[in-house]
Structures are given as structure tokens and as C-alpha cells.
Amino acid sequence: MTMLILTLRSEPQQRIDVAPLTPDGLLDKSAGEIGDILLQTGNRQVRTGELFDIEGNDASHMVLRGATGKLDFIGRGMAQGMIDVEGDAGSYLGMQMKGGHLVVRGSIGAYGACELKNGTVIIQGNAGDFLGASLPGNKKGMAGGTVIVRGNVGDRAGDHMRRGALLIEGNTGAYLGSRMTAGTIAVLGKTGRYPGYAMGRGTLLLAQAPAEILPTFNDCGTHTLGFIPLLLKGFGGLDTPFSNMSESLRRVRRYAGDMSGLGKGEILVAAGT
């Protein structure tokens, strides 16, 4: 058994919905059967075999080679296995994913890991707006799993987030964790304006002070919190600097909010920043 490699033959003219190409969907399928799977692009459907060269037969470890930002819905709803995206990915990457591992060597578009249920998503580049959020009109965002972004993320990351962890090693846009219900978002870089807007519960753990904190967040003082080392230790199995930051993030300034709503969320800013 060798890993299944799907190589994009050329840059597509239109966006392609590649949701059917998951380990769950391709297990036990031959290269011919995979090639016959129809993918939606624009207002027509195209055979997978017309877009991708297909090698290997182990769908539990898939590689999307030569991927571009026009491939949407990569890993949508996947529950097992691994997808390794060599290149960029479009929007809705890992949407409603239930398990497994998704690694993107490049950057992704909007709504990455939206409504994620479980599993691990690692983005080596940047992520667009609404990372880990809910779909427009829905009220339940990411509900489990872990997302690591090595680069920067856009606005509204973690919108309506309910559980799980977003670990952002770069900078974030505005309204980080907006309308968050629970879960943890940790950021190493700079944070845009108004983090925690309308958050009910949940934790924003920031290594640097944000550009601006809403007046509806109340300063609770500086504290050494015992749960932070436990939380960061929990990321020990992942390749992230957060797992080694127990000491630098242990003492934090706590802001409680958003008092315009439930007010049981918190922004924890590393002390001394």
C-alpha cells in the first residue's frame, strides 16, 4: 500500500468543490473509481480523473499535490486518516471535520475549520477570515479539535466557537473570538482590534497585549493561574511552541467580558507585555 497522491494537472479556471475527496470517501476505491468521481466546478461537474493524476492506493494517507486556493471544501466532514495539502487551499477547508489530520503546506482561504468537530488541522501559512467559525447564519462554530496556524489569520477567527483550541502563532485580525461560547484561542503574535467582541464564555490567551480592548471588558488584575500549564501541557503531542510556554504564559492579566452580554469570557494577556 502506498499513499494516495492526487496531483492537480493545471491551475483550474474556476473554483472546485473537492469535498468528495476524503479518506473516508475513497477507502477501498480503485484509481479508476476515484477518477470517475464527479466534482462540482462552477455550474458543471467534472471527473476527478480529468483534473488530477492519481497514484497510489492507500486513501488513509492522501496527498493533494500542486493544490491551489481554488480547491474548496478540502477534507469536508472527514472522520479519519490524513490529508496532506502540498500548496494552498481554498475556503471551507476541514469544514465539519470529525477526526483525522489535515496539514496544509501553504495558506488557506476563509472559513477554514469552520464548525470543526474533532481532529487536527495544521496550516503552515496564513488563514483567511472566520477561521474555526460557524457558517453564516449558524450559531455553532468549532466544537472540538485543534487548529494550529503558523502564520497570520484574518478577522473574526473563532466566531461562535464552542470548544476546542485555535493556536495562532502569527498575528490575528479584528474581532478575534467574537460571539465565542467556549473553548480556547491562543495567539503568539499581535491581535487586532476588539478581541472577544460579544463573547459569552471562553478564553483568549494572548502572548502580546491586543491593539485595543473593548470598554466592556473589565480588568481583574494580574494572576498566576494553575490551569494554564495544564492547558499548554495538553498541546505537548503537537508541534507548537505553545507547549513549551508554561512559564512565560503562566502569569497573566485577566480581563473579564464581554459585559455587554453574558460576560463570563476572559482575555488573558501575558503579564509584562
Binding site: A182, L225, G226, F227, L231, G234
Partner: peptide, 20 residues
């Protein structure tokens, strides 16, 4: 009180006079 789920296990942070 605040709930935190870490590695599949749930923990509670209960505010008390010496911290949590």
C-alpha cells in the same frame, strides 16, 4: 466557575479567595 476540556478530560476552575 469556568470549564476547560483538555485532551478529552474536563476540568473546572473555581474562583476562591487565594486564586482558583
Amino acid at each position: 466557575q469556568i470549564s476547560k476540556r483538555i485532551n478529552g478530560r474536563r476540568y473546572w476552575r473555581v474562583p476562591v479567595m487565594d486564586g482558583e
